[in-house]
Design a protein around this nucleic acid. Structure first.
Lengths: 342, 342
DNA sequence: GACGCCGATTGCAACGTTGGAACCGGTCTA
DNA sequence: TAGACCGGTTCCAACGTTGCAATCGGCGTC
């Protein structure tokens, strides 16, 4: 049905191998022959069959990217970065959604569908440290995020503790003293929530401020609705606070909405800081102060780390850990300095 | 390196074809043989090499999805729907970003990278009616959106004119009379902007209200910053209006922010309606009244239409056009009825 | 003038799979 | 008892490509 090497060879009057050689810039070809072949290629509109090429070479030129859900802005933006970076490297990206479901994540790791790819960048959200062995897979794998540490594979992630500490210190420096949290996970030690909460606690303790459990809002899923819900619960509880640390932007934006509905002025009465620096954070009202955890760098590094593994599959280099730099992005919801009461 | 049919056959003591038959549930196999083969498969952890299978069958089990940019919420959500639907059909999705650039869109249509897929769902944003011939490609193609009509391929899109008319009528019914527009494209006749503007104009004319060019804000790219920019220009121009129709949610949200900054109350002074019903529209302050154009249905229909073409590549059925149903979703930014002045 | 070398090209096998034909022993039917 | 039929299995070719070895004529070298 479609044009193959044989067709080109027939038209050019050479063997298929010569055509293959021309395509691969094999040096010893007479200019006349090369030209005839090239003309035939153009004339027929030949493009190589990548499937066949892959079968021979064992490579597919595609990588998989598994994220919880593209409707979560953070992951959509991350996927965008990954695709962009992969394109530069001439590689194509196959996107899978796991729904943050542990079972589906585990299944995906063993899915035969991955045979179409050379390796995977995997951002687990349901699995945890207990599933570490499931990462021992027969293909190159790079994991993102903070659900699993010290696994048998390369890992690219952000400095959660340090970033959260910086976010908290930033609020403290601006004069806030009672900083509520939205989105904590009960009992979690590692994981985004656990680590960011730890950074928050460390900053408070360093400043000599006791950690007050009554202003820590727990919420499993980091959807905006949950940020709103947690905020409402905190307000209804009667607890007092002059700042809110949303463990991600989505939560923070949801929380901010409820604060405003409740008649609390942001940042006047309550300052709000988020985490992720998603696009939207620039445009909310007020715009959201947040921590930019270096997602673009993470995507870039993940792609390169993976492609490096693919290229050197023979080597058995030990797993590496890459940590991005973060940055507190000051915006209106928590300006650098603001009197608590005016 | 990895386990093949041969390995399984050797362990089970049968020919590779028998193993293949077991895998494909060929009925005439002795139970004892089947069991031996199945045990060998489990023992060795065999998974079929999809590349080889694809080479034989000519199918890859993957489809491509080309969107402008995943950082645009609408396309991220659309991609999420497509992936979800494809997964149900046992097909994997390869996502490409075109950056809404005409050149890159045209290149992508002829890219050999597509050889990895059985077909493509393509959402052009840079190409236009003049590029209709470029859609004549040698693989199944389904296009989305309103940049190109009556092309040589299947097309799934929304009812832009009718939806925009409904949005405008909704604002009129709630008592608004001077409805500004944000995001129009100068001189565009088809395309999302052109069609939605037409629906807007039709509704006004039907209501006996003249179309006032001074309250139509033109803006090429539908980013939030541009919604904000267009709104600021309208305000600065001194034009009067009591409602804003953002030609998509992102524009509307950007516009809403500027309105509030300028001290105009939404919906009290100015009602705002958007288009797309992205997730975020539910959570803005105030929540955004918008038109749900049926994106989930579009994704579902696009996937099925494409897979249908793939399955029946032999048939030469004429191109089809599928139009989704829309729905005005009433929220706070433009309640069903609201006095213009109180 | 035999030898080796070099440039240019070709032929063959293989990647892992599947479809179809072929085979083979047994049972049913005429 | 020959022939048809059937269930169960095997064999072979093919999908389109590339790596390796082989080929072949001409040329330079000793």
């Amino acid at each position: 049905m479609s044009i193959t090497l044989h067709d080109v060879a027939r038209v050019a009057g050479v063997s298929i191998k010569t055509v293959s050689n021309v395509i691969h810039d094999y040096p010893h070809i007479r200019p006349a022959t090369r030209q005839r072949v090239e003309e035939a290629i153009v004339e027929l509109g030949y493009t190589p069959n990548l499937t066949a090429r892959n079968l021979r070479s064992g490579r597919t030129g595609a990588i998989a990217l598994a994220v919880p859900d593209l409707s979560l802005s953070y992951f959509a933006e991350l996927a965008g970065f990954v695709i962009q970076e992969a394109e530069k490297a001439g590689v194509v990206v196959l996107v899978e959604q796991t729904g943050a479901d542990r079972r589906r994540e585990l299944d995906l790791l063993r899915s035969p569908r991955l045979k179409l790819t050379d390796g995977m960048i995997f951002s687990p959200l349901g699995m945890g440290q207990e599933d570490l062995e499931a990462l021992r897979v027969p293909y190159p794998l790079v994991i993102l995020g903070e659900r699993i540490f010290d696994g048998p594979v390369d890992h690219v992630t952000m400095r959660n503790v340090e970033g959260a500490r910086a976010a908290t210190e930033y609020l403290l420096a601006s004069g806030r003293r009672r900083i509520a949290v939205v989105g904590a996970h009960r009992g979690e030690v590692i994981g985004s929530a656990g680590l960011r909460l730890r950074g928050y606690q460390e900053a408070l303790l360093d400043a000599g401020i006791p950690v007050d459990e009554t202003i820590i809002g727990y919420m499993r899923d980091w959807h905006r609705a949950n940020g709103a819900l947690a905020m409402r619960q905190l307000i209804d509880s009667g607890a007092e606070f002059d700042a809110v640390f949303g463990l991600n932007d989505t939560l923070a934006l949801g929380a901010m909405r409820v604060l405003q509905e409740a008649g609390l002025r942001v940042p006047h009465d309550v300052a709000v800081i988020g985490w992720d620096d998603i696009d939207e954070a620039q445009y909310s009202i007020p715009s959201l102060t947040t921590v930019d955890p270096g997602s673009a760098w993470i995507a870039r590094t993940a792609v390169h780390t993976l492609l490096d593994r693919v290229a050197h599959a023979d080597r058995r280099d030990p797993p590496t850990l890459h940590l991005s730099d973060f940055r507190v992005v000051a915006r209106e919801s928590a300006p650098v300095a603001y009197p608590t009461v005016t």
